[in-house]
Design a protein around this nucleic acid. Structure first.
Lengths: 196, 196
DNA sequence: CACACCGTAGACAGACCAGTCTGGTGTAAT
DNA sequence: ATTACACCAGACTGGTCTGTCTACGGTGTG
């Protein structure tokens, strides 16, 4: 009577997703270090046993949280691939999304940068999740510039990343409008050079 | 026999400075939230009583740490004022310092951005110290662009700040060399426009 | 029905944290 | 010698944190 236990066949459990949704919200708005598991558990309306059944530790949940954010970004870029005809349109789509994010209410900076600020050891799984995301992101942007025929797509991607990170930090800590407009100017300068 | 207790006349205590020096090192390299007071106390070779004599709480010490970093930045800009003849030279002096910082060993990003990532409440004294620093910094850069005769010094300062914050984040989390060169390109573009 | 699995409910341990308190030592000026 | 002060030494409190534990209830399937 060895059970098959087809986990995938069973309906998706709500508790696991509820925990992750709560963690995503609290981790992003208040910081992964500040928010404790007790708070996530109570706001998720689950119990500790359930929590630790799905996430073996808080650090593991933080990694899953970042992986979820990474997944969202990848899905967004994939949607641009199907909705846009040219690499330049895709690039502008990314910029539009970033510039919209930084002036949106409830913006609290880049979740990866914020998480990394609280884990200084580069070998820690959290930092590795951050590095994996940033590596993928940089490569994707570089590919777009290369697709546009940019002479130095690697440099252009670095320029793009610099502006993005700066806008996220500036909008979070200082003036969102100023960071927003400065981001658009910086990107425009990079795009202007790609045509030259 | 009411004592005069002329605190200022007494030789400066070493313990207080030792505590701050230790806190500066640990807070910057490992994060203000990760490092506990016990660690600062033991590495400073002082006792808890001495620690709490000079710093009423850990949060107060964090604020003093940031104020010290702010003071260093102000002293540096003041030194540029005396050593440089033109606003453009001063601006280039700032850029040189930033670009040197990001590729220097032991660089861990902007201490203010890192500290702010762990205090999300804008009303918290730590966040206010961060805001005070950034406001002063932005105004100083804007003054330099204005002194150069830039048509829109406020925008140029935003552009500068964007590049600076981006370089700090990128160098800390990813590729210091890439962030370094991207920073120099971004600043050069802004300076090119100031002449136009 | 019996079983497997979902989830609830909350006590509990062990570690770590910030911050307070008592008492003692060395030194320099009065 | 007495007073004042900087500092040492470390126990202690009260709180919070992560993570483990036991015990029970509901539900759909074979």
């Amino acid at each position: 009577m060895t059970t098959l236990t087809p986990d995938a066949v069973r309906p998706a459990t709500h508790a696991k997703l509820r925990i992750l949704a709560t963690a995503d919200r609290l981790f992003y708005t208040e910081g992964v270090h500040t928010v404790g598991v007790d708070r996530i558990i109570s706001e998720s309306k689950v119990t500790k046993a359930t929590f630790y059944k799905y996430y073996r530790s808080k650090d593991a949940l933080i990694v899953v949280y970042l992986q979820g954010r990474d997944r969202m970004a990848r899905d967004f870029l994939a949607s641009l691939d199907t909705n846009c005809d040219t690499p330049e349109q895709r690039l502008r789509g990314v910029v539009n999304e970033i510039s919209a994010q930084v002036i949106r209410g409830g913006f609290h900076g880049c979740p990866f940068i914020n998480a990394a600020a609280q884990f200084t050891d580069p070998a820690h799984p959290v930092r590795q999740a951050v590095s994996a995301h940033r590596d993928w992101y940089g490569r994707s942007i570089e590919d777009m510039f290369r697709g546009m025929g940019h002479a130095r797509p690697g440099d252009a991607a670095d320029d793009f990343f610099l502006a993005r990170d700066g806008a996220f930090a500036g909008a979070n800590l200082g003036d969102p409008i100023g960071a927003h407009t400065a981001l658009l100017r910086a990107i425009q300068r990079v795009l202007d050079e790609s045509g030259a």
